[in-house]
């Protein structure tokens, strides 16, 4: 895993440069798709703060993407607020949900933690369906304004925010806070014995991670112009987990790539066969079996192999 670790920033910068140029050569349809890819990448990076770095697996992260998306959409469409206030509303909603669900879920770890996050996320889903007046129920919210309206211009707005936040995540895991995350992941008992407040650090990681998902949701709602409750359903939480694992949870580059790749695997599989969920399942199973460190792990092994032969 050495190449991966040492060259992560370099890999990220090259990839981001590529992503800055590539829309010039793509159709509007594909630019739109790539915008979603960026947001999936951002979501995976945010999820990976909690999963890859703090060692906690949440099956409920769709609730934070939804908190962002619904918060913004409700602000803009239902309450006729200006964009700044709508974003503020989205963040407030995310923050409250994250602190409360995080505080309660983090009384446990491992599978119990995962189950609790899943339960809370389904609760949020149920609320979205029930509170029809505010959320539009199962029809969702339509006519969300996009600024700038042009897809390619909007891509660059998304791009700038995503690039900034991905680099920020790269940075955070290299600060004392990030070291604390990793220590908790490896050995919470020892971390505690060495004087760390483990639950507090876990909660910080959880809320930070939720913030990333929320930003992705906030950017997603105008991109799509409409949102429906499936972004709050548990299957979307599973997708967030899956794409992080596909890319590789060992670092932020892997997670980011995972999000970008996922959107293409998903669309291709959906186009090619009606059994796309099955196909996706098989791809995932193969990946986990053959490449436990994800796509980036494969890349790493190839590079090591080529270097070794010379």
């Amino acid at each position: 895993m050495k190449i991966l670790r040492d060259n992560e920033l370099y890999s990220l910068v090259v990839l981001l440069m590529f992503l800055a140029v590539i829309p010039q050569f793509l159709s509007t349809y594909n630019v739109r798709l790539l915008s979603v890819g960026l947001l999936y990448g951002l979501a995976a990076v945010g999820f990976n703060i909690l999963y890859g770095y703090t060692g906690l697996i949440s099956f409920g992260h769709a609730m934070f993407w939804s908190a962002g998306a619904y918060g913004l959409a409700i602000g803009l469409v239902k309450l006729n607020l200006d964009p700044v206030l709508s974003i503020l509303l989205a963040f407030t909603l995310t923050f409250i949900i994250a602190v409360v669900t995080g505080y309660l879920s983090l009384k446990h770890t491992e599978i119990y933690f995962a189950m609790l996050t899943l339960a809370f996320a389904q609760l949020i889903y149920a609320l979205i369906i029930k509170l029809r007046d505010i959320t539009g129920g199962d029809e969702g919210i339509y006519g969300i304004p996009r600024f700038p309206p042009d897809i390619e211009q909007y891509y660059y707005l998304v791009y700038m925010i995503v690039a900034l936040l991905v680099l920020l995540a790269w940075w955070i895991v290299r600060t004392p806070l990030g070291l604390g995350f990793q220590a908790v992941r490896d050995n919470p008992y020892r971390a505690e014995a060495l004087g760390m407040d483990v639950r507090r650090v876990r909660l910080i990681s959880f809320v930070l991670s939720a913030f990333y998902l929320s930003v992705a949701g906030i950017l997603y709602a105008p991109l799509n112009r409409a949102i429906t409750p499936d972004i709050a359903f548990w299957t979307f939480s599973a997708i967030i987990v899956i794409m992080t694992i596909i890319g590789g949870s060992k670092n932020m580059f892997g997670a980011f790539i995972g999000g970008l790749i996922f959107i293409y695997i998903n669309t291709q599989a959906m186009n090619l066969t009606e059994f796309w969920q099955l196909t996706l399942g098989i791809i995932l199973a193969l990946l986990v079996y053959l490449a436990p460190y994800g796509v980036v792990g494969i890349f790493d092994r190839v590079v090591e192999y080529v270097r070794g032969r010379r």
């Binding site: 600060t175 971390a191 060495l194 507090r200 910080i204």
Partner: peptide
């Protein structure tokens, strides 16, 4: 090195800082 850095940072109660790299 990072194992020991963690111990020292935890002792100095700097575990929630993120203004500088931990090294």
């Amino acid at each position: 090195r990072d194992n020991i850095r963690f111990a020292v940072l935890a002792y100095k109660k700097r575990m929630t800082r993120f203004n500088r790299g931990y090294g």
